[in-house]
Design a protein around this nucleic acid. Sequence first.
DNA 1: CGACATATTGATATCCATCAAACCGGGTGG
DNA 2: CCACCCGGTTTGATGGATATCAATATGTCG
Lengths: 211, 211
Amino acid sequence: MFTRVSMMSGSSVSLSEFTYKKGSEIFRENEPADCVYQVRTGAVRRYKLLSDGRRQIGAFHLPGDVFGLENSTLHRLTAEAVTETTVRKISRQTLEDVAETDAVVFRNLLTTTTSNLCHAEDHMLLLGRKSSMERVAAFLLEMDNRLTKAGIMSLPMGRRDIADYLGLTLETVSRAVSQLHGEGILNFVGNTQREIVILDRRRLASIDMPS
Amino acid sequence: MFTRVSMMSGSSVSLSEFTYKKGSEIFRENEPADCVYQVRTGAVRRYKLLSDGRRQIGAFHLPGDVFGLENSTLHRLTAEAVTETTVRKISRQTLEDVAETDAVVFRNLLTTTTSNLCHAEDHMLLLGRKSSMERVAAFLLEMDNRLTKAGIMSLPMGRRDIADYLGLTLETVSRAVSQLHGEGILNFVGNTQREIVILDRRRLASIDMPS
DNA sequence: CGACATATTGATATCCATCAAACCGGGTGG
DNA sequence: CCACCCGGTTTGATGGATATCAATATGTCG
């Protein structure tokens, strides 16, 4: 479970792998941020809650993504495994010690944080200004880019998670997907509603970004 | 106009001050990101546009704030002066050279980026899940924290900017502010609608975060 | 004072949330 | 193997919050 891994720079940090069952919590908002994580398999949702239960998922993390890097000593969102998920866990302190002396590691920290910021900025535009159909189209294209293999996209998350990511209700998401199916833009494969083939990326993209 | 400023660490970088007239553009989305900026006086809005004119302001930057730090070589939002604004401009290359050898400077870069991410994460919750009244209350409290002097908050931005920040229309913002005024939670002073006294922060906070 | 920008207020429309019911697949146990 | 249940999804009917359209008011600047 413990290994030593070089960080492309001569330095190395110890890290360990963990597996989380579907739905289990990885860390909670306002918990001490002791570790940084990298997804190996599965998927993670990071979200904020209001006291009455309203939830906003800020990001999904898929294999390769790094998350849990915080400024303060506390996590600012809760992280949960969407499906069975394995992660690499790196002690924050260890990482910072290495970063202190290794500019490449430090630059990677900055790059990771900046790309999270990038994503958040795009997502604010979606949440503040896009229609429900535009949101769903944007979501499908995002996931298509990140996890399509052999033309089939197998979504790890259910309609509820998608809705809470897009700032919609699950019914609205379902209706939008049904409509796209009816218009021949996507198809379902297998017997779950989570395996999707996008037939017409061009048309999806024009829904996302109306010209 | 040019000065040398120590960065709390023995290093120094050259920087220069610029003034932008109300409404003028500081940089545009997808322009090369050559410089990093710090607001000295005034206010800056950073936003994204859709092709049909819908606008989402991702953040307002007030005196002291750093903005324009990007991952790639391109800016990802457009920045404009909300009012007459002066900024300090630092060459990105210079900053990176210094950061290379000075861990304190590098850490400041990371801290700045992370606090921008922090703000974006809070704002996604607002945009995705809060009602119009909750958004306006949250906005007033945010601005109150950041720029109230002597009990009076003088908003640099108009209703249109507030609306585009909150993902609402300007009419909805205006109605919410009027309602808060009618309920005795805030008052206007002077003869503009931009100078506001918050009379009851407790009540505003309970609107923002319903318990 | 007059012209223009900005803000408020009112009337109506629309998109999406809410409430509700049916559907579907998967697992469990008889 | 089938009956049942259960979580997740789809689909339908209705309502409500906010957008839109429009008019008036207020403030700013020449």
